[in-house]
Amino acid sequence: MAITARPAPGEPVIHLHGRQLPWLLEVHRSMFRTKPLGAFGAALVLLLVFAAVFADLIAGDPTDTNLRSILQSPSTEHWFGTDMIGRDIFDRVVHGARVSITVGVGAVGLGTMVAIVMGTLGAMRGGVLDIVIQRFVDAWIAIPWLVFLLAAMTILQPGVGSIILVLALGISFNNSRVVRGAVLSVMAQPYLEAARSLGATDGRLIVKHIVPNIMAPVIVVATLGLGNVILAEAALSFLGFGIPPPTPAWGGMLSGTARDYMYIAPWMMIFPGIAITLTVFGFNMYGDALRDLLDPRLRGSR
């Protein structure tokens, strides 16, 4: 009887992709049982996503000015007060969640995809390509990140698109190392040897065996990266190099002309800052717990 690599007709085919949902569900169930801080982080993240998705239902128009009610302190009518041109701070903070999530998911998603390509190519091809990628990563780490971001944002002009692009570049360099390490360790596994000797092409190896098996560390660094990216976007918008007004970006709400009013209307400053803090706190707590559960080897890196 000939040995075939293909399953016989009628035999169930096990897809790794199909197993991923219950696998992740299981991880979260044990997080809620054993990692109270991680569960708290996850709840904060969920709250943020909720605010971002339903911003239009929860809050009013963030750019709606009302010159009759400027610089009002927090009240039942304006929960977080109003700014110097009568915009409601609560509306702006809620809509700011949407901006932060867009930038975070965009930059981390794009950056992680590039990191997977860079890391996988480097690890599988090796040789000159690997060395060149590694030297570029070294150079990236040597340049103080804020200096690079400021220059890059000045070149590209401030805006949501360019900030996603620039931050994605940073994410891809940082995370390509993790991907490279994970791919190298998968390549040393017997199952990869087995797949290869069954005649699997490189493309099939990558899609079916390598990528599904490096997902755990990738999910962890991506979650932690979301917090960093949101913080970086806030810092850039604060310095006036990020998302230009009137878009309600949390960092931008603390900068520019708003600073002239910080002594008379401190609530203009307090609430966006709390929003950034809770968001970054949530992503880090959640990411740390994911790391403990998914990939103990990564613990403590960075």
Partner: peptide, 8 residues
């Protein structure tokens, strides 16, 4: 880590 230094 989470508190933005510029806000603090």
């Amino acid at each position: 880590l989470a508190i933005p230094d510029f806000w603090f």
